[in-house]
Nucleic acid binder design. Structure first.
Lengths: 227, 227
DNA sequence: AAAATAATTTAGTCTATCCTAATTTTTTAT
DNA sequence: ATAAAAAATTAGGATAGACTAAATTATTTT
């Protein structure tokens, strides 16, 4: 198996990210995410599905899915990316809103040796600074029971597990609200129609957040003893 | 000034390395160093000398020289490379014979922010693990008074300052001889014709080395009090 | 179900690099 | 000063990946 180009790695990673959150990896969504024109996406999907072995399953107008081989390649890149983010924060003094671009470039060039060293130095972390799970060294994605905050109902107690967005401004905003991995919160109210939520984050003032925020915050619901 | 491609950065770096050691950056020497065919080199040199501003001064059959702009770009890459090598050894536990490839890939992708952080964490080192000088943050190459070991004469005392080769096997060999930066030595004898040297490295057995080794070991001659 | 809109694909190009084969220029050896 | 050898260049093509414009297919609205 020859090494995949950085480009192809980016396509595979992006297809993984989209499909793993339940979205369809359509031509347009890939084009938007990758900042590339739609025809270029079509061309690349045709190529990736024609490789031996194919990295992508693709049928005209149907979007793309990763094959087994494509998924392994995507998980390798994703492992690099998330380990790098964790390491940039833990060992290099970066803040969580400033690691994405650096990791995006380094993820394609580090050796397996480097990967091993940073993984070991961090104690083989299971999540990156945003709470995203880090695939294991043998490329299995840990299963998680997180669900988007906007799926909760009034009165639910939960713990923030993941902020599923890499935009720096967004991250600084949710940090300001205290919505970082580990934070506990209670859903106080949900507006009908628009889904706006009033929440109480532990140790904070009450806050109101829209769906654009709440669907990126993934939480784990806490069981409450109902005496 | 748009960012230069990794490719171009490698050309510039290689031209710098050749010319700075007094060799001519000829088409063939570049081809050998870069592992690329000679016609490809010619084509790239034509391109680089035609850019606005030109990065290279080039005339048919005459080899290449860096322009001011080309040299700055080369020094930026070289600074990245050498800082990375120093940091891989000092902070990441690599040995000096295993850092070159990793640094060659990372040098093109790290941000200025990353560069600053590793430089600061190392205390702004002046040399990499092989003793090569590290260009300053404002891209000036420190001047050194090293000269190749094979330029010495019998009886000279010297300190090893630099091993001017990145080949892993070569590095392990000279390390085995004790010829690492900081080591003190005395030239005991020099064979006529072939230049083979007998040397005494402080704390070691006497050793005999050929020119293939002695011309890569750069030393600083020690003044000896001649009472 | 037709019309309008949105999404996708095809067709035809472009740029960056690389290559091999053939040719030319320069250097070296007789 | 030639002839031979070495070095470098030109010519002609290939591959990866991206683009725009035009055409096609799907989806949504009415």
């Amino acid at each position: 198996m020859e090494a995949l180009t950085q480009n192809i790695q980016d396509y595979l990673k992006t297809i993984y990210e989209l499909t793993s959150r339940g979205e369809k990896a359509s031509t347009n969504s890939l084009a938007k995410r990758l900042g590339i024109s739609a025809p270029s996406i079509t061309g690349m999907l045709q190529k990736l599905s024609g490789l031996q072995p194919p990295l992508v399953r693709y049928q005209k107008h149907q979007g793309a899915m990763l094959t087994e081989a494509g998924e392994k390649a995507a998980l390798e890149v994703l492992r690099h990316h998330r380990l790098l983010e964790a390491w940039l924060v833990e060992s290099m003094g970066y803040t969580w809103d400033a690691v994405h671009d650096e990791a995006c470039k380094m993820e394609h060039v580090i050796s397996e040796e480097f990967e091993r060293r940073i993984a070991a130095s961090l104690g083989h972390p299971l999540r990156d600074p945003h709470g995203a799970p880090i695939p294991s060294a043998d490329l299995v994605m840990p299963t998680t029971s997180d669900l988007p905050l906007n799926h909760l109902k009034i009165g639910d107690h939960a713990i923030v597990r993941r902020v599923n967005c890499e935009d720096g401004a967004f991250l600084r905003h949710v940090q300001h609200l205290g919505l970082v991995p580990g934070a506990k919160l209670i859903v106080l109210d949900i507006s009908p129609f628009d889904g706006t939520m009033k929440i109480q984050v532990a140790g904070r003032e009450q806050a109101v957040i829209g769906e654009a925020v709440s669907n990126q915050i993934h939480v784990e619901v806490e069981d409450i003893e109902e005496t």
